[in-house]
């Protein structure tokens, strides 16, 4: 665990704003309940996302995570469980 543990809500918020910036859309337009592949991230963007997420969380994140049919909600949950 890092010193400043993030909650599922923190992670969801980070992902929403990351996608909003990356896709140049409003944060309100990001749906937390649809799979990531619906956003059409290519592999390089997916790599950048997991890399930045890793830096922000302070622990390792699998670069393949974006390909496991996760939604923002399930991904946040998954990351918390992995960190335990």
């Amino acid at each position: 665990m890092s010193n400043n543990p993030k909650t599922a809500a923190d992670i969801q918020k980070w992902l929403v704003s990351y996608l909003a910036v990356s896709l140049e859309i409003e944060p309100e337009g990001v749906d937390r309940t649809i799979p990531f592949e619906n956003y059409g991230l290519d592999s390089l963007k997916a790599l950048a996302l997991t890399g930045d997420l890793e830096d922000w969380l302070g622990y390792e994140v699998d670069p393949t995570l974006m390909y496991d049919s996760h939604t923002i909600e399930t991904l946040a949950q998954h990351l918390l469980e992995e960190d335990e």
Binding site: T50, D62, P63, Y67
Partner: peptide, 13 residues
């Protein structure tokens, strides 16, 4: 590092 991550995605998918 990038190459290894990229390869992981390739084999994963």
């Amino acid at each position: 590092e990038k190459y290894l991550k990229f390869s992981m995605i390739g084999f994963h998918t």
